[in-house]
């Protein structure tokens, strides 16, 4: 540009401009992501908590009018409470199954070397690679043959398979974060393997195990496809809403949506710290 070495400000100015543009892009990106997540949630709650007449109105008010008519209507709608109760039962059973199988697998992965360990880890992820619609028909046939169709247990088994990879990976990273020496110290101090696990490993891993249990709960709570295919009488809330989507009035849809989203949101928020553990980010 210029041959003069003293001309420093000229050289510095584009640098400042680039910095400023970069910062603008950074914050714009963050703003966009936040809106992407928050706007639908805001929309859902504003409509659920407004009077039915306001739902179709425009412009929207930022704060809802806290008219509980929609929620009340939803709550009194035929079959909603039964479906809600089914959802809770399936989700709790999923949670128990996923942790009951996933935590031992996670422990084994973190503590033992066995042939095919890496392959097993890949396999665990691979269970998520099969599209559920592909499996739904054979599963439905099999369930009808074994009498598992339209039962809470049958659906919970399918949901547990969906939640299992996460349960295995989260608990694997949890157990890996607990030094082996703690267990070994317990052995030398008079513990059997099982005692060392219950007295030392479990108390340290429990918050994380709870978190991964909650995550399994949420996976089941939100799952709609398997629920819609495999249940008829005993529908979960998601399947119930899907079934009545085209016949139910708009306020019901919003209230139902809010009822589905709220527990999931609260739970995920409560355990967010542990979900990072899945990607191996240390948080001790």
């Amino acid at each position: 540009m210029t041959a003069e070495a003293s001309d420093v400000p000229v050289a510095a100015t584009p640098q400042v401009a680039v910095n400023r543009a970069g910062r603008f892009l950074f914050w714009a990106g963050i703003g966009l992501l936040v809106l992407w997540v928050l706007v639908p949630i805001w929309f859902l709650f504003v409509n659920a908590l407004s009077a039915p007449a306001e739902v179709t109105g425009f412009p929207k008010r930022f704060w809802p009018s806290f008219d509980l008519a929609s929620v009340q209507f939803f709550w009194n709608f035929q079959g909603v409470t039964a479906a809600l109760w089914n959802s809770v039962k399936v989700a709790v059973l999923t949670m128990i199954l996923a942790i009951g199988m996933g935590a031992p697998a996670g422990y084994a992965l973190s503590r033992f070397d066995f042939p095919g360990k890496e392959f097993f880890r890949v396999l665990v992820i691979m269970t998520r690679a099969f599209p559920l619609p592909l499996l739904a028909l054979p599963l439905a046939v099999m369930f009808i043959r074994t009498g598992l169709d339209d039962t809470v247990l049958g659906l919970a088994l399918v949901h547990a398979m969906l939640a299992l990879p996460f349960a295995v990976l989260i608990t694997f990273s949890l157990f890996s974060g607990i030094p082996v020496e703690l267990e070994e110290a317990a052995w030398t101090l008079g513990c059997t393997r099982l005692q060392a696990f219950t007295k030392v490993v479990l108390p340290l891993a429990l918050p994380g195990i709870m978190a991964s249990a909650v995550f399994a709960f949420v996976i089941s709570w939100n799952e709609v496809f398997a629920a819609a295919v495999l249940t008829i009488e005993n529908r979960t809330l998601t399947a119930f809403l899907l079934q009545s989507l085209n016949v139910s009035p708009l306020p019901l849809k919003f209230a139902g949506g809010a009822a589905l989203v709220l527990p999931a949101l609260i739970f995920i928020f409560a355990v967010r710290k542990y979900l990072f553990a899945m990607w191996g980010i240390a948080n001790r």
Binding site: P179, E181, L182, E184, A185, A186, T188, L189, V200
Partner: peptide, 10 residues
Amino acid sequence: AMVFQNYAVF
């Protein structure tokens, strides 16, 4: 009884 390098205090 054993004392570990990283202490292994519970």
